[in-house]
Design a protein around this nucleic acid. Sequence first.
DNA 1: CAGATCATAGGCAATAATCCCCACTTTGTC
DNA 2: GACAAAGTGGGGATTATTGCCTATGATCTG
Lengths: 213, 213
Amino acid sequence: MKEKLKIFLVDDHTLFREGLRFLLSNSELVSNIYEANNGKELLKQVLNIKPDIILMDIEMPEMNGIEATQEVLKLYPETKIIALSMYANENYYTEMIDAGAKGFLLKNSKFEDVQNAIADVYNGKNYFSPEILHAIIKSLNKKPKKQNTDLTEREVEVLYNICKGFSNQEMADLLYISKRTVDKHRENILLKTQSKNTAGLVIYAIKNNIFEV
Amino acid sequence: MKEKLKIFLVDDHTLFREGLRFLLSNSELVSNIYEANNGKELLKQVLNIKPDIILMDIEMPEMNGIEATQEVLKLYPETKIIALSMYANENYYTEMIDAGAKGFLLKNSKFEDVQNAIADVYNGKNYFSPEILHAIIKSLNKKPKKQNTDLTEREVEVLYNICKGFSNQEMADLLYISKRTVDKHRENILLKTQSKNTAGLVIYAIKNNIFEV
DNA sequence: CAGATCATAGGCAATAATCCCCACTTTGTC
DNA sequence: GACAAAGTGGGGATTATTGCCTATGATCTG
């Protein structure tokens, strides 16, 4: 690990920023600390400063943390960005992760967690607060993953090929059966899945893990 | 924290089990250690023993760790189950999480991690090996969330309604335009999205976040 | 072995989608 | 004002799908 890191704080709450600056200035990990009020301010400075780590608030005026993360990583992809949020809101952390953040801390974390996050993320790992982790696991959990269909094997096969975009004639050629048989299967699938047309079939197949998007 | 925990090891590899038993027997966390070869053996004993923690292998003969986890939690929901797997396979951990496991360790973990996992999970937290965490984050990441379409507003609207299962005539009535216009839009959408039929359109819409399943 | 389910397949008809052609209006931009 | 793009709409034809009728052989189950 490089001795000392350049840390950039981006948060519109001055008092919070000052407090964190003080804590970080006493940390052995940190050499320089820079600050910005919002995403726009950060973007103006990031290429001159080339910070190792950015601690980024999400809710900010002018440019929020999600946009700022995307833009910063376009300009300077080497930066590691850790999100700092008041809330373990699912949209926040999924969007921050999509945007390229490597860590996610809640503002009620202990400073020790902040230091751990900085060290981990600087070393290429991810760091997420236990609360965030818990929320992520819960959201993984809520996908039912049911394959709760009373479709027969052949029907599942036909449905899968419908999703792949084959017409009944093409499937008939593919499966070495008559087009009329495929017609029949399709009709039965429509009935069983209570769908009214192809669109409904595809949606059903995806929901029931017969087809992956 | 309760002084000492009852730990149940479920793994078909005797040598691995013996090694882990030895390590655990020297741990301050642990009072009693129980063992089983597979899920069926575990189920026979679990209600008599009422273990605090079960360390559960996934790939086992007779009854695998995923089924075993589901069954154990039906019988005795208080048990905390930690999965122990050779591989950070996505299906493994998602299914184990769905089944109700609270932690997931790889077999190449350090014993220290096992102890941390036991402590965390016993205290109601989740514990996942860094490798697993990494895989989970990556799988969150791989959803591109792009709305990168050159479809016009009206085309997006039509595509959305196709996914809802409306026919062109129904959409025409819905949008107060001619069926021929909807036909035209649909034709243009097929062209622009390079789809060959309705199934392709629905898949495209889902991939591009025009429609949610 | 009787009955159910599954996979097979055909007839026939109506509706829906796809693929060409065409044209007109509105809106915004250079 | 010329041009492009978006939204509108029609003619006409082909192909796909859906819906409802029938029926047969295979396999499984009580």
